[in-house]
């Protein structure tokens, strides 16, 4: 009999672990592997939502990598369209790929964008022993021989990280974009590893992914793609100060499924605003090189619609879509 009850206990415990552990918790999907920007968004917002008592159970984070966020997007649109307990990390990369019709025909109006609560400045870095000292050096080298430089980034080819150097090159008058070499890796950390190892000559990414490596001295930032220097990283020159009129900030925010009600949407918007207003979030932004950038609710949705149109135009200009 003891044997039997022991068995029952085991089986029951295992099943309870499988089934019961997450009965009504909010789930946040990070559409990339752990360690990248989307993962960061889910972890931090998820933690604050719980710490600030905006949700009553810890937020569970699911990493769903693939196709630059397309896998998660497809999943949300097709499988979870009415799930009001689901939030998904989003960023400029999401709208970029939507604008380029890169999510297998999915469009930006198939989900609702709740808000952005921070901006992650774009950065271009090289290994510490790289011959390139300024952004100008790098651009000149590419102009002279486009095959001499390979960029590594955390997004797929044609994605936001890929567009960053192309925008810089465009502002410098170089438009043969197809010749610029770029490899997409799973997240910024891997891209940095490849650059430190000398397999790629430069890495493009967001400040939050790179901050630790800049501080440790393994990589050197050539330029930050913001209007003003980023607090905490004042010694990194902006691209503008080096004569390249480019500004690329990767906003960090969330989208939710299309099928939820307006009330549920507004509830998420309020919660996100509360996170944005908290002192904890301001500290997190400062620690991770994020610049303040808050747009929430209907306001944000309208802004996104404009961004998608602009990005589509830009992508056509630089030739990544027809």
């Amino acid at each position: 009999m003891t044997k039997l009850s022991f068995r029952a206990l085991m089986g029951g415990a295992a099943l309870a672990v499988t089934l019961g552990g997450n009965a009504f918790a909010t789930e946040c999907i990070a559409p990339a592997d752990a360690g990248g920007g989307w993962d960061f968004t889910c972890r931090q917002i998820g933690k604050l939502l719980y710490d600030l008592k905006l949700v009553d159970q810890p937020v569970q984070v699911t990493n769903m990598a693939g196709a630059g966020g397309g896998v998660a997007y497809t999943h949300v649109v097709t499988d979870r369209n009415e799930d009001a307990d689901l939030i998904v990390a989003a960023s400029s990369a999401t709208t970029t790929r939507l604008a380029q019709n890169a999510y297998a025909g999915m469009t930006a109006d198939q989900v609702r964008f709740v808000g952005a609560i921070g901006g992650d400045p774009g950065v271009i870095v090289v290994a510490k022993d790289s011959p390139f000292q300024t952004l100008g050096d790098l651009v000149e080298a590419i102009k002279a021989d486009p095959t001499s430089v390979t960029f590594a980034g955390g997004s797929a080819a044609g994605g936001f990280d890929h567009l960053k150097p192309l925008m810089v090159l465009k502002s410098a008058g170089f438009t043969d974009f197809a010749k610029v070499k770029y490899i997409g890796l799973d997240g910024g950390a891997e891209a940095i590893t490849q650059t430190i190892g000398g397999f790629t000559q430069a890495m493009t990414g967001d400040m939050s992914e790179i901050a630790g490596f800049i501080k440790s001295g393994d990589v050197r930032a050539l330029a930050v793609l913001t209007a003003d220097p980023v607090p905490g990283f004042e010694d990194i020159p902006t691209a503008k100060s080096q004569g390249f009129d480019v500004e690329v900030v990767n906003w960090r925010g969330l989208y939710v499924p299309r099928g939820i009600s307006d009330d549920e949407f507004n509830a998420w918007a309020e919660k996100l605003q509360a996170v944005a207003d908290s002192a904890e979030w301001k500290q997190i932004m400062a620690d991770n090189g994020l610049a303040p950038f808050t747009k929430v609710g209907a306001d944000f949705q309208g802004w996104i619609d404009g961004v998608v149109i602009d990005t589509t135009q830009l992508s056509k200009d630089i030739g990544v879509i027809q």
Partner: peptide, 18 residues
């Protein structure tokens, strides 16, 4: 370790060279 990494980041510990 990807999941562990996620855990560390949730605890506000950022793994990396430092």
């Amino acid at each position: 370790t990807a999941v562990m990494l996620a855990l560390l980041m949730t605890l506000n510990i950022t793994p990396g060279p430092l």
